[in-house]
Design a protein around this nucleic acid. Structure first.
Lengths: 196, 196
DNA sequence: TAAAAATAATAGACAGTGTTCAATTTCCAC
DNA sequence: GTGGAAATTGAACACTGTCTATTATTTTTA
């Protein structure tokens, strides 16, 4: 068969990412298959390679979708909220990871070869999430410490990530940790309470 | 061919783990191949399955080896050290991860199916490392807070892990973080300085 | 010592995977 | 209509993990 032209390249790209993301949510990175995605949307494997060029770019696009959803979820949970917004952000971080555990894990299971840089728009999606956290950290910090917001946001992101990761990968279960979220929140408040 | 009897099962197991670990260090989890390991030690793929039963158990054994080395490295760096031993432990944590980056990453890249528990001796190896950290946290804590040592050690492990992970997976490079180790150490000292 | 049992090791078959690419069909503009 | 551009295919390739019947060697037993 040849050109069906049911879809423009852009439309098809969207269809593949949508189905790819669905697959990633269902089976996880280890069992993800580009062939399976092709089969499900009624295209052949060759088409996926025509559109994305490589497996790595396909995964990057799917992970990019996950980042978009994550950012949107963070923003929606924070929208118009008062009180302890930073706690809310940490809650939302955990919630998203738990609900979309496979897709979330794929963000970290997948690594590009060392000599290949991530796509530009992927970087932008990562920094978009970090900007949200930085904004909230700046809000929570006394004015005298506003300058710390950026590095502190990065560090707290890593801190919360560590707790979230150990929750989902089973490490905390092995160690008998019952309330990882509270532990993460304690580390956050420790950093905010820091006397400089 | 049949029985060559060059090695007992136990010896062969050791040979496979050693070569497997070497491969893991070199190519990383994504490109690891049980067949390649078999080829390198001059055995056929079937033998590996006879010895380990499955791919998952092979990887668990290799990761177990990594945990052993990690524990030994931690202990050797701490042995007889005075001063800020907790800082030393965090340094050693990072150092090991950086030097053995592929093998270290494999500890987290690999996850057993949800319904299958890790081998008993793997759990013991994990807890052995946590015991070391717990001991050092207890030492660093004022006596009145000794009871906190266990949960705090878990939380600080997650904290340091997050920083280490973001360092090695490139997230911190994207975000412009230049000194992740110092950031991790700050979070640790924040937690120790906590007023309860 | 001869037969039986246990152990060690093999290699091929199977069903998957990512990747490539020449061939094919369809659409659109002229 | 016709030519060229765009879209799509599917077979071929070199891998992967997994399973299992078969074979060769040792060790044990009788």
């Amino acid at each position: 068969m040849g050109r069906r032209s049911d879809h423009s390249r852009a439309e098809l790209r969207e269809i593949i990412i949508a189905e790819g993301h669905r697959q990633m949510e269902n089976v996880g990175f280890a069992h993800f298959s580009a062939r399976e995605v092709a089969k499900r949307i009624g295209y052949s494997i060759g088409t996926i390679y025509n559109v994305f060029g490589s497996y790595d770019e396909l995964i990057s696009a799917i992970n990019g979708r996950t980042l978009d959803l994550w950012r949107d979820y963070l923003e929606s949970r924070l929208e118009g909220a008062g009180g302890d917004r930073l706690k809310l952000a940490v809650d939302a971080y955990f919630e998203f990871a738990v609900v979309h555990r496979h897709a979330w894990a794929a963000l970290y299971d997948f690594r590009l070869p060392d000599d290949i840089a991530p796509p530009e728009d992927y970087l932008e999606k990562v920094t978009a999430i970090v900007r949200i956290v930085t904004r909230e950290v700046a809000r929570a910090l006394p004015e005298a410490r506003t300058a710390e917001a950026e590095p502190l946001a990065r560090s707290l992101l890593a801190t919360v990530h560590g707790h979230c990761f150990f929750t989902l990968n089973g490490t905390f279960r092995i160690l008998g940790e019952r309330d990882p979220l509270s532990a993460a929140l304690e580390r956050v408040s420790d950093a905010l309470a820091r006397r400089t």
